[in-house]
């Protein structure tokens, strides 16, 4: 993996968030409803390929990931992101039609799962739990 990614923290001390979903409605919903002070959106991607490219340039600390996307699906994307930055926190956001697929994504290295459709409160709670869980492991 020729990852020339530099993981520089933001000057304001916030964690970097990348939103990955082929629906721009969902992308905007996440951006708009993000109520966690510690997170700042640095990139959005509408397919897995875009996400991996953006991640190589500037790796995020936290990623929200859709599963069914064109070009490269969420499962493959998760696999690639974890290869580039093993400690990245990934929240899979998907409909709960097929649990096996969601489990597949978690096997590849995602950390948590949020079911679509979700409320802003559910999103906030899931992201906070994701950050808290990472703190516990230290």
């Amino acid at each position: 993996m020729a990852a020339t990614a530099k993981a520089e923290p933001l000057t304001n001390g916030k964690l970097k968030l990348m939103i990955c979903d082929d629906s721009n409605i969902i992308r905007r919903k996440i951006e708009r409803e993000l109520q966690i002070e510690r997170l700042q959106v640095i990139a959005t991607a509408s397919n897995g390929k875009q996400a991996v490219d953006a991640f190589r340039k500037e790796p995020a600390d936290v990623v929200t990931m859709d599963i069914t996307m064109p070009e490269m699906d969420g499962i493959e994307c998760v696999e690639n992101l974890v290869k580039i930055k093993p400690d990245v926190l990934i929240l899979v956001i998907s409909a709960l039609s097929d649990k096996a697929t969601a489990i597949e994504a978690l096997k590849k290295g995602a950390n948590g799962f949020l079911c679509k459709p979700f409320t802003d409160r559910q999103l906030t709670e899931a992201l906070e739990e994701l950050l808290r869980g990472a703190g516990n492991d230290d």
Binding site: L91, L96, G109, N111, F113, L114, C115, A126, D137
Partner: peptide, 11 residues
Amino acid sequence: ERVNEKLVKTI
């Protein structure tokens, strides 16, 4: 160790 227990209950 990677997976957050609370965030996978739904699946």
